[in-house]
Simulated assay, not measured.
Amino acid sequence: MASQAKVISTKLIGLLAIGARLVKVGYVDQTDAWRRVYLSPETQQKFKATTEKHLHTIKPETEEVALQETPHPSESDNRTHFTAVEIDGQGTVIAKRHFTVQ
Rank of each mutant, 00 (worst) to 15 (best):
V65E: 06
R21I: 09
S74L: 03
K24R: 14
H54E: 15
A84W: 00
A84T: 07
Y27S: 08
V23K: 01
E52H: 07
A49G: 09
T83D: 15
I18T: 09
A33R: 13
T62W: 00
T57I: 04
E52M: 06
A17R: 14
P71Y: 03
V65C: 05
V23D: 07
L16T: 09
S74T: 14
R79N: 14
P60G: 07
Q45W: 04
T31D: 03
W34P: 07
K59P: 02
L22G: 11
H81C: 04
A84Y: 00
Y27L: 02
H56C: 07
I18N: 13
T83A: 10
K48P: 12
G26Q: 03
Q45L: 10
W34V: 06
E63N: 12
R35P: 00
G26S: 05
K59F: 05
E61Y: 01
H54Y: 15
D29A: 05
G19Q: 03
L39C: 06
V25L: 05
E64Y: 01
K59I: 07
K24L: 11
A33Q: 15
K53S: 13
T50C: 12
T43V: 14
T62N: 06
T62A: 09
T43C: 11
W34S: 14
T80F: 08
A33C: 09
T62M: 02
S40A: 08
D77E: 12
L16F: 01
T80P: 08
L16Q: 09
K53V: 06
R79C: 08
E52Q: 14
P73M: 08
L39V: 12
I58T: 07
H72R: 08
K53I: 02
E75S: 15
Y38G: 10
T70H: 09
D29V: 01
V85C: 05
T83P: 09
S76G: 15
P41N: 07
E86F: 00
H81F: 00
L15M: 10
E64L: 07
W34R: 10
L67K: 02
H72S: 11
D32E: 06
V25C: 06
V85T: 02
P41W: 00
T31L: 00
S76V: 13
D77A: 07
T51C: 14
A66M: 01
L67A: 03
D29K: 02
Y38N: 14
V37C: 02
